[in-house]
Amino acid sequence: MSEEAKTASSIEKPPAETKTPPAKKVKPPALEDKPFTEFMEQHFTPTLKTALEKQGLEDIQLDFVKAKIPIKGFESNPECWQVLGNLKNRQFSFYFLEENINGQKAFSCATDNQKPSTIESFMIDERKASLDLMVLFALKRLNGQKWLARN
């Protein structure tokens, strides 16, 4: 090795500055990742009410409650969370059989202040529910009952 090479290798180099990677922005959790009751009370129920009002159902009352399903044959089933809608002499219920927006859901409706006689599955093909999708399916289901538009 030449003298220059020996001298160059013996000269200490200043330590390389360590660059810290920029801090990642922490994303707030998605609405759908919130606890079930919080999501339903703060997001789904108010958003559904607003969407129904935009469709012309001004006097609709929506409640989010935990209760038994009021259909004959379901008396022995445990209570489940429900979104209950009332407008004059018409009622509907969206049932959440699990405390999970991606869990099993059902629907029933009745008129003339009668108890519903049938229960139907609701959103059975959707693996991942979102707020927008749940509201869309609710509107489509109610429109199928002629609540939103007459054919």
Rank of each mutant, 00 (worst) to 15 (best):
S121H: 09
F39Y: 05
V83C: 00
L48T: 03
S76N: 11
A110R: 02
A149G: 15
F107C: 01
K115V: 09
E53S: 11
G144V: 11
I119S: 00
T118K: 01
D112P: 05
D125N: 11
N102C: 06
Q55T: 08
S117W: 15
D59R: 05
F64N: 01
Q82L: 01
E17H: 06
T50C: 07
E58A: 14
P35D: 10
Q114F: 08
L57F: 08
K49H: 07
I101S: 03
P116M: 08
L48F: 01
Q114D: 12
F36M: 01
E98P: 07
E17W: 11
V83Q: 10
L97A: 07
K115Q: 03
P15K: 10
N143W: 04
L62N: 00
E4Q: 12
M123N: 08
T20W: 12
K27D: 15
F94Q: 00
A30W: 11
P22N: 04
L142Q: 07
R90W: 13
A5H: 13
L142M: 00
F94N: 04
K49W: 09
P21C: 13
A5N: 10
T7D: 05
Q82M: 08
E32T: 11
P21A: 15
E75L: 09
L133P: 13
F137H: 10
S130N: 04
A23G: 03
I11N: 06
Y95Q: 00
W81N: 01
